[in-house]
């Protein structure tokens, strides 16, 4: 059947209202990123209407996450070292993983609302718009106050760097940045997978949180305080270990407890890319399931 032409008789004099964009995967991805940008910007504008409320939320987010680290400091007021790590070294582990999580949370923190959206039917309104649902869900309720977490963990990271001596080449600062970014990508992928999972189990937001937030807490402690099997499981089941353990251990000049070959330390970006690809597939599968069941 031939496609019905776009322009209508009554409006033939006017140009068509919408140009049909390229259908290539790259064009779609770029369009998704652009759409994410302007939706997020609109949310920022709308929160800025209530400036005082925004400032309080930002401070709250900062304070809540700061308490986390205060807990670790209190622990160190009783012991000098945890599993052979000094306070500054633990702070480095904490700072890298918390910054990664904070960045992922800032960019993709809305994925725990997929279940709610499915239940109240607002998912449908996203599916009738010409913007990828992934971009819409990600940008939904974009909250700049989540910068509080990033700021707090960034400060801890800076403080840690002032107190430890990193071994390695002049490239170590670059490695640190790459570590934080690929960590953020891995956390982001977990957020997306968690969101996709909610298409099947709509109350799964808590399960997802135990993976992401629980996983982050574990990374904030040195690996030697955990049992070996647990460490192995975390390395392979959820590659969160790549977020900071292996690269940071390398930077601190320590051996990792599993004695993996040395190149594994630098596999972070590759793992991050693989995680994102898997997350993309999981999201597509989830969306397909939703569209065949409608619930």
């Amino acid at each position: 059947m031939a496609e019905v032409p776009l322009s209508r008789g009554t409006r033939a004099g006017l140009p068509p209202a919408v140009e049909v964009p390229g259908e290539s995967a790259l064009a779609r991805a770029l369009w998704g990123v652009r759409a994410y940008g302007f939706i997020a910007a609109m949310w920022v504008r709308s929160t800025m209407v209530y400036r005082a409320s925004f400032a309080i939320m930002l401070l709250g987010s900062f304070a809540m996450t700061a308490l986390d680290f205060v807990g670790i400091m209190i622990m160190f007021s009783h012991v000098d070292a945890l599993g052979g790590f000094s306070l500054h070294e633990v702070a480095l582990l904490y700072g890298t993983s918390a910054t990664s999580l904070g960045l992922a949370d800032l960019v993709l923190g809305s994925f725990d609302r997929v279940g709610t959206r499915v239940r109240d039917g607002t998912m449908d309104t996203m599916l009738v718009r010409p913007v990828p649902a992934l971009a819409q869900v990600a940008a939904d309720r974009f909250a700049l106050r989540r910068l509080g977490r990033v700021a707090q963990s960034g400060l801890v990271l800076c403080w840690a760097l002032s107190g430890v001596e990193l071994v390695g080449s002049p490239l170590t600062p670059l490695l640190l940045a790459v570590t934080v970014l690929s960590g953020a990508a891995v956390f982001g992928a977990v957020f997306v997978v968690g969101g996709a999972f909610q298409f099947w189990a709509q109350d799964a937001a808590e399960v997802q949180n135990s993976f992401t937030y629980g996983g982050a807490t574990m990374l904030e402690f040195p690996p030697t305080v955990f049992a070996k099997d647990l460490v192995r499981g975390v390395t392979f089941v959820i590659p969160l270990a790549f977020v900071n353990w292996l690269p940071v251990l390398r930077m601190l000049g320590r051996d990792d407890p599993l004695r993996l070959p040395g190149w594994v330390d630098f596999a972070g970006p590759a793992v991050a890319v693989a995680c994102c690809a898997l997350a993309g597939l999981a999201w597509r599968a989830g969306l397909r399931a939703y569209r065949s069941t409608g619930s």
């Binding site: 919408v18 709308s46 009738v128 010409p130």
Partner: peptide, 21 residues
């Protein structure tokens, strides 16, 4: 998404607008 540009949808029970905007 290609069809989305050519159709309009109104769900009576829920809004397609942004609540706080």
């Amino acid at each position: 998404s290609r069809l989305a540009r050519r159709i309009g949808v109104v769900f009576g029970q829920r809004t397609t607008l942004w609540w706080d905007l």
